[in-house]
Computed example of a mutant assay.
Amino acid sequence: MIRFAYGCIPSIMSLAFANTLVRRGGLVPTSILLSAGGLRFQKKRYTPAQVLPVFLRQFGARFTGYNVLAGLGGSLPFGAPRGGLMSFQQLSRAYGIPLRVSDDFSGEETVEALRAQQVDLFVTSMCDQILREPLLGLPRHGCLNLHPSLLPDFRGVDSIFQAMLHGVPEIGTTLHRTTARIDAGDVHGQSAFTRTGAESHLALTVKATAAGVPLLARHLEALEQGRTPPSLAIDVSRARFPYRSWPTREELERFHAAGQVFWRAEDFRRLLRFEDPTDPTTRDVFPVAKAPLGTAAS
């Protein structure tokens, strides 16, 4: 059996993914690593107390409030009752998954803990840390990331926001190799689903990450059977939508002017009830393709 660890920020979206991964996908990590120590923004690390006024100045109340709600939803030690969304602590107790809080996944202490667990694969989704050596070279099957876009398009901090801002008709999910260069490692799988104009950022994020669970399941199955999972190189120079960092004020204004929203109360109710987030229009995009991603297939 392939032993994999999952690393993420403690948010309501990453919590929903962890629940889907374990309770619907049947993929139980050897451990879950929660990123701590605040938030990295403009090459600086801010504590939770410091980041609030910085975000308010930079992004305004609506975007800041959404991020606060998302963070609080993922940090509470208790979950919804009677089959609803389980907290990280509840998942840990119910499925025997050790929880570890770390401000540096690539640091010596965390790497030694993963080595002691004999981790074969390290998986991230919604992670705010840039992985580096020695972590990148530790697992025998490497490190993977689930990125909510069809790479090489929409590389960067918030691909769902950029996809909504540009009005693309499909939301994609990519399982790719983690490298020192952000969102540029070889792709092992991609899926996409049709979006509607009424869906919020929160709803689309939860759908996109849920679409990554079957991609990861197939990858793990191939490894367990001794097969080499399919892969394609990314040609980042041919991306239709380039790397983007945090939204600008102007982008946020355009986002709201177009009637887009970050969340609705019903989104949180659906999350707390742990309703199935799978979109029925989800389809595989790769491994059908043959050419390097970002180029035209011959």
Rank of each mutant, 00 (worst) to 15 (best):
L136S: 08
R195V: 15
R140M: 01
P148N: 11
P134E: 07
L135T: 02
G212T: 08
D158R: 10
L146W: 00
R181A: 07
G167W: 04
G189I: 06
Q129A: 02
A210T: 11
H147P: 03
H147M: 15
G142Q: 09
S200K: 10
T178P: 01
E170W: 05
R195H: 02
R177M: 11
L204T: 03
H201V: 04
T174W: 02
V187T: 12
L135D: 03
R132V: 10
L131N: 00
T173I: 15
T209V: 12
T174M: 07
P214M: 10
G137V: 07
L165H: 01
R155E: 05
R132D: 00
T196I: 04
C127P: 01
R115E: 11
R195I: 12
R177I: 08
V187F: 05
D120F: 06
L135R: 10
V157R: 14
A203Y: 02
P148A: 15
A203M: 10
S200E: 01
H201Q: 14
A192S: 13
G172E: 01
Q129N: 07
E170R: 15
T179L: 14
A163K: 08
L138H: 07
T196D: 07
Q118D: 13
Q117M: 13
S191N: 04
K207Y: 03
P214G: 11
D158P: 03
A192R: 11
D120Y: 02
V119K: 07
D186R: 14
E199F: 10
S125R: 11
T179W: 00
E170V: 14
L151V: 11
F122P: 04
G156R: 12
Q118K: 15
E199Y: 06
S191P: 05
D120V: 11
T194C: 08
A163V: 10
D186C: 13
T194Y: 01
G212I: 09
A208I: 08
I160V: 15
G156N: 10
D153C: 08
H141T: 02
T205M: 06
T196E: 05
N145V: 12
L121H: 03
D186K: 13
A116N: 10
H141Y: 08
D186S: 15
G137I: 05
R181G: 03
L144Y: 04
P139M: 09
A116W: 03
A210L: 06
S125F: 04
I130G: 05
Q129F: 02
